[in-house]
Design a binder for these strands. Structure first.
Lengths: 378, 378
DNA sequence: GCAGTTTAGTCAGGAGTGTTGCCCAAAGAT
DNA sequence: ATCTTTGGGCAACACTCCTGACTAAACTGC
């Protein structure tokens, strides 16, 4: 039964939702302005504003309009509407922000980590930054959106270790760590998925409903956006391309991650890509560098070709520290143009994309939570 | 603005929608029964039924309840609510049905075609069966859902020919052919996508939100279901796996479709798989057959492994004439179990799945059209 | 055959929406 | 000081849904 039951209460809650959403978009409005923006009549808006103010969701800011005509009172979301926590966890540290329902970053902090800090250090850092931010925002943290540099199990929200892929952050359960600090849902996903969301919202894939985002860094990842949403798959492991078969340097087929072993571009004792070594080996002039670059492009292209065949993107976005290098993006684009289904390749261009994408989702979730307060029994 | 404007008209239309949907589910109901089913009060239901009857959407069937208590009048959707056309086009012919809003097949017909009939013959056959069905249903054809054995361009609805893939039906624009016969939207998609939908609704993937369906027949296709929907990609060509690289019989990488050329299993002068030859060569006892079977399983597995890595299905469903053979499904399952991310493999089990899937969608669309009549200006 | 029981449907009243139109209040413009 | 413009409140109205009581009509049981 996908259709709601008709009731006057439903109608009222729709009105209230219109008012709240209008105030989330425009920060502060008079009742007359809300009526104009929503198209709902003035008396109805006045009723709704009174109801919502009494419920503590809205507050008169005390400010007044200036200009011609009678001055009106500005209303805004209540000061204690709370904030959402946005956290990005990498082996190098935790970056966290608190965002409010207007989408503004109201607080920000960081905690550095050593590379490969182990799960306890990461958990401790996450708890520390979350605790600090919590103390700095009114109304508390009502939800959290976490980006992690490892694959995330969709059902449990835990970071998982896949064979033949580096385990960058380590065994961590962000929801468990944050439970005492956040009184609401904790959403956890892979940084690559959040980055794809950011590129769709504000980057080079703005408004594109179907595209593939390839992350080329220490880890190798991919996000698939279909019908305007990142599709995570059953376990949340969609886009885990590390052991997808592709073309190796010698032309034979091998798992993507082994290409880096063959080229000697792995970190010592790890399956992670050695980005510094890769830069040194694959970029710049020189025949050797060109050969290495071509080998890398061919390997990436094998992966991308599979993604193209299976998901039919309009666009391929390449991100990550060595993926966005023009030389690399170009080489991949040329390689891909040779395949039967040519697809444009562009470089990602959002800064700290995993944070931008997670922030975007956090604002959306916080807004939904505020609106959801209207419907106690659904 | 994803939130509707509140109005009494909205409330009324929600009530009416509840009534219509209840009558689509249960065929015929008294007003008291509608009230019980929807949870809406009796007077409100009586009002709504009167409105909808006057609008011609509902009609008193003349039947009455029997049993204890006062007898009530049964209402049902109007006789002229119309039907939806469901058509499946293959090189062998066109199969078509008319379904009503209750999901019942009210008429059915077929038109045989020679293999490779050319676009004009196929169009003519489609027009003929559609015309016949139209004359046999009251209220006309309000929408059409077409399954075609070729890839379909999502934006235009036309069948398209991809290089290295057989063009089974040929250049056809079902929407243009049907426009004079159907006064409503014409939805066209690949048979494999409809088959996947059928397996999700009634087959071996019932209720599974994330799975991959692989079709192994004359053509080679694949459908990706993510978050409970078939994802078609930008052009509608998601899952076109014919030239996805996989392992060939000799262990080297090659496009999927070339595997069949190497094994001598293509139809003369075509890129289509010769199913009869494949059956003869790959099934049954004997070392040679086992070798061929293993080679096919390895090739399929290469494709499936790519799909698994990129879309993380919970399940892989294998369909199509030679895919559902137990020997083949089993061989693929064993091969896949050796890969790092083992995923269960099951054989498809719906009969004429493309027709079942298309029918399901047709009923949904017809119902939506009937309900949409309530909202003239949205 | 008739009273009792059970179920379908209607009626009247009331509570709660949103809307229109009109009024007043208050601020800047002239 | 008056005019114009804008914010906001008030009253009347139309509409929707609900509750509770009522009537209507069928079957059951004696």
């Amino acid at each position: 039964m996908p259709v709601a039951k008709p009731s006057l209460e439903l109608l009222r809650s729709i009105t209230d939702e219109n008012v709240l959403r209008a105030l989330m978009e425009r920060r502060r409005l008079t009742r007359a302005e809300i009526a104009a923006v929503t198209g709902i009549s003035k008396p109805t808006i006045s009723d709704s504003v009174r109801r919502l103010s009494e419920a503590g969701l809205l507050a008169d800011t005390g400010e007044r309009t200036t200009g011609r005509g009678r001055s009106g009172s500005y209303y805004s979301l209540a000061e204690d509407s709370g904030a959402a926590l946005v956290a990005s966890i990498t082996p190098f540290g935790v970056t966290a922000e608190a965002v409010d329902a207007f989408g503004r970053v109201v607080a920000r902090t960081e905690a550095a980590l050593d590379r490969a800090p182990g799960p306890d250090r990461a958990a401790e850092a996450l708890a520390r930054v979350a605790g600090e931010l919590r103390s700095r925002v009114r109304g508390g943290l009502r939800t959290a959106v976490v980006s992690a540099a490892d694959p995330v199990d969709r059902t449990t929200g835990r970071l998982v270790h896949l064979p033949d892929a580096p385990f960058l952050v380590g065994d961590l359960d962000p929801a468990a760590v944050l439970a005492p600090l956040v009184h609401g849902p904790v959403l956890v996903d892979n940084d690559v998925n959040w980055a794809a969301r950011a590129e769709r919202g504000a980057g080079c894939a703005r408004g594109v409903d179907d595209f593939v985002y390839v992350h080329l860094g220490e880890g190798l990842g991919c996000a698939v956006v279909s019908d305007a949403e990142v599709r995570r798959g059953h376990h949340g492991l969609a886009g885990e391309i590390a052991h997808l078969y592709t073309a190796g340097p010698d032309g034979t087929a091998m798992p993507f991650t082994r290409v880096f072993a063959e080229l000697g571009l792995r970190r010592e004792g790890s399956t992670a890509v050695d980005v510094a070594a890769l830069r040194a080996a694959a970029f710049g002039a020189g025949e050797e560098a060109a050969r290495t670059r071509a080998a890398l492009a061919r390997a990436v292209c094998g992966v991308v070709a599979a993604a193209v065949a299976l998901t039919d993107p309009r666009l391929v976005v390449v991100g990550g520290p060595w993926g966005v290098e023009p030389e690399m993006t170009e080489a991949i684009g040329e390689e891909l143009a040779r395949t039967p289904r040519g697809v444009p390749v562009v470089a990602a261009r959002v800064e700290a994309p995993e944070l931008v994408g997670a922030r975007d989702r956090a604002v959306e979730e916080l807004r939904n939570l505020i609106v959801a307060a209207l419907r106690p029994a659904d």
